Amino acid sequence: MAPHIGLARLDSLIPVEVAVAAVASAITELHEGRLEQPPRTVVADGQLLVMSALHRTTRDAVVKTLTIYDIDGSKRIEGTVLWYDGATGLPRFSVEAHRFTALRTGAVSGVATDVLAPERVRRLAILGSGAQAATQLDSCCVVREFEAVSVYSRTLAHAQRFVDEAKVRHPGLRFSVAGSANECVENADVVCCATGATSPLFDLEALPANVHVNAVGSFRPSMTELPAGLIDASTVTVLDDVAGCLEGSGEVRSAIEREFPISDLRSLGAVMESGVERHGRTVFKSVGCAALDWGVGKAIADRLESVVLS
């Protein structure tokens, strides 16, 4: 049996800064055609997801299965990540998928923020208070130095708990709990949306004229976090996986229905290669793709190998 990596060991093996670098490398591998990822399998509007990716040169592969259910009004995510060694074809290790997914999703927002957000920032807004929101905060703080963080959650107690825990990890930041989503984003330089919302979290008019927005919580056409018109009016809209977002992002599909040109949607890998002007409102939308899983899986495999060699 391949060894299973639990939550505590995962965090010790892969700190957030390592995850950000690993995902950046995987996005480049995908853009340059060295990673193969078929469309993910989606069952029952996202209650079951299966994602896989294989590196064409090393043959190292990752397969992730997730189940996502609403239980008593709270979203429960369970699943497993399996890493296959390209040299033997055998499973090398497994990882609990919930924390793994939050880690790689935060990491890709960190990469996007590094590419799209202004170099000098002060205020970060976090909408959401779960595991995904926590890694959004941690990853953005890897690539930019913030002074203040505003947090909004539909449940005040959840937002306060998030802030209390975040202060321990980031003692140099000033945290506040916003009374509304509009209040949360109104002075932000960077906004991170990590919720399961089915309607826009904030009004378009509440956003500053110059702001970078990461949206990672919604992953099915029935879900949306961003206000109508934000993608249409953004300086640039960047996607983790263009095909995946065209199929799974409610925000992107809605913009296309309003005749937003598909050709104006750019992949993160393409923008990393060419660069982009950082001004106005920029948007990064992620529905999650197997390349991100492969990147963190590769980092784990490398770390395990270094432990064996030492």
Rank of each mutant, 00 (worst) to 15 (best):
R59G: 09
S25E: 15
T105A: 12
S176F: 11
P39T: 14
P38L: 13
P200I: 07
G280W: 13
A21L: 13
D302H: 15
T282N: 07
A8D: 08
D241G: 04
V108Y: 01
T237D: 05
S199L: 09
P118T: 02
A291H: 10
F146I: 03
R303Y: 11
R154H: 09
P15Y: 00
V151E: 08
T282D: 02
F284K: 00
G280I: 07
T235W: 03
V252E: 00
R59D: 13
T282R: 05
D11V: 13
F219Q: 02
S109H: 04
V16C: 01
N214Y: 05
N214S: 09
A133E: 03
A19T: 07
D60N: 14
R278S: 02
R56P: 15
I5P: 04
E29Y: 07
M1L: 09
V42I: 10
R34H: 11
C289Q: 10
R220H: 05
V163I: 12
T195Q: 00
S12Q: 13
A159K: 02
A206H: 05
V81G: 08
I71V: 09
L124I: 01
D138I: 03
F219E: 03
L49I: 15
V276I: 06
S139Q: 14
S267A: 11
A209H: 14
A19V: 07
L49F: 11
D72L: 15
V95N: 05
L13T: 08
A87R: 13
V108M: 05
R281W: 01
M51Y: 02
V276T: 12
R161Y: 13
L292T: 06
T57I: 10
C192A: 14
N210H: 13
Y69H: 15
V191D: 03
T113S: 06
V111A: 04
L13M: 06
G6N: 08
I5W: 02
L127S: 00
S218Y: 00
M51V: 02
P3I: 11
S306Q: 12
T88C: 09
V95S: 09
I14H: 04
H170W: 04
E247M: 08
R278G: 10
F162Q: 02
E147A: 12
D164N: 12
I77Y: 14
Q136V: 01
G250R: 00
H158V: 07
V149Y: 02
D72Y: 05
P3T: 08
A291M: 07
A243F: 08
F202C: 03
D293I: 03
A131I: 14
I300Q: 04
A194N: 01
K298L: 11
T41M: 14
V149C: 05
H279G: 10
R278H: 10
S234A: 09
W294T: 10
G196M: 11
V216I: 10
T28E: 15
